[in-house]
Design a protein around this nucleic acid. Structure first.
Lengths: 142, 142
DNA sequence: TGGAAGTCGTTCAGATTTGAACATCACCTT
DNA sequence: AAGGTGATGTTCAAATCTGAACGACTTCCA
């Protein structure tokens, strides 16, 4: 269980650092950053709400809330899904893309400085494969 | 960054599973469980508020809130610290200890089933040492 | 011995998350 | 083609977290 304890503490401490850095450098929260990052990578810079929620591991209502916030900030827009009238597309705006481009380097720097760059090549490799496998297992048994 | 993505998703997904299991089996939240677990291991089953907050990686106000909840449930009591009149000791009650003993096996089972047991011995070893080192680094630069 | 400066835990308002309930719409069977 | 089943996104109240402000107490140095 020592492994678990360390994993848990590290993830919480990191979360805290990231939140702090993002808030200071752009007034964004970590969930909001994650949303922008996912959208930026998506084809057409847009994604369905449910799909996006799964991607960033958030509940549907949490995503609704955050998208509303990002919409107020002009970083994201909502559009109705052409193929499904129930569906809503979250679309990254130009301003959102610029915001992300401006903030991403600092964010990546924090992640590297506190996590990635502190691991040996073997540790990084082992952790990556372990996390990918675990993530898959967790997503499989929804 | 793939490593980071997987790490982040895994930690969030796991958090979710754990929360679900704890709530179903004992009406506890994960932070609450962490508090009980730490107290159970502490000498005299008691800890100073600030120390406990650092241990479970929570803000002071979040801890105040959760200790109040646990106090209402009769699982924890507050006591004034003999050596410092400002200080408050969170003390695990008998009921709290029993509750923890009852819930712990199921909790550990979830952590093992979704994380620990899915890793090879090498991965577990690498991850543990990596997490311990990272945790230490994060705690050092408070 | 007197503060000045720091620590301790709490409080408060505001922000965010959760889970259930809901209305809307798609899909599939008959 | 109609109805049942399931999916989608939103809403709401309640729970929780955050960060700053606060009063109470310690500690340390002059």
């Amino acid at each position: 269980m020592a492994a678990w304890r360390a994993f848990l503490s590290t993830s919480h401490l990191l979360e805290r650092r990231i939140e702090e850095q993002l808030k200071a450098s752009a007034g964004l929260t970590h969930p909001q950053y994650e949303i922008l990052a996912r959208l930026a990578e998506a084809p057409g810079r847009q994604m369905r709400m449910t799909e996006l929620a799964k991607g960033v591991v958030a509940s549907k209502s949490a995503l609704t809330y955050q998208i509303t916030q990002l919409e107020k900030a002009g970083l994201v827009e909502r559009a109705t899904c052409p193929s499904d009238d129930r569906g809503v597309l979250a679309v990254l705006t130009e301003a959102g893309a610029r915001c992300l481009a401006r903030v991403a380097p600092g964010h990546v720097e924090v992640v590297r400085a506190y996590l990635i760059d502190r691991l040996t090549r073997e540790e990084l490799h082992a952790m990556t494969s372990a996390m990918l496998r675990t993530e898959q297992a967790l997503r499989a048994t929804a």
